[in-house]
Amino acid sequence: MEHETASHASGGGFPPFDQIDTFPAQIFWLVVLLGILYFALSSVLLPKLSKAIDDRDDAIAANVSEAAAASGRADAAVKELEARVAEAKARGRETAARAKAESDARVAAETSRADAALEARLTSAERRIADLRTAAMTNVSGIAEEATAAMVERLSGTAPAPAAVRQSVARVLAASSTEN
């Protein structure tokens, strides 16, 4: 590298100070080269770099605010959904209650109708039984009078008065019916 060392080469002294003859060359090239560096940086490289940084910062800011907005929208959608579900539930409950009431009413009506029919049949049956019973009772008193008259005639040889027979039979029947 030692092509042609400047003036006081390695002859003692203090190189940083005693090479004054090289100052114009050092300063000239420093100014020229730093000028090139400054020009390249200020006109091309730094604007590109700062633009990339700004673009990214903008993109991040936009993304964050977009995410916040989307999250807000999602929250609103969730709330709306919840409201809808609650509404649907209420409507469902209402429908169910109405249906129950209707069916209850129908069941009650059917039941009362069936009850009434049964009641009617029961009463008519009871009446028939009572009729049959009175009819049977009259037949019984007739047979008893005849039997009584026949028994009295056999025993006494004379036919009793029909009125007296009827009277006593009635008395006995009444007594026995009270015994029962």
Partner: peptide, 11 residues
């Protein structure tokens, strides 16, 4: 020489 490294040389 520790100062040698500061020697300016014309290329």
């Amino acid at each position: 020489d520790p100062m040698h490294q500061f020697q300016i040389s014309r290329l």
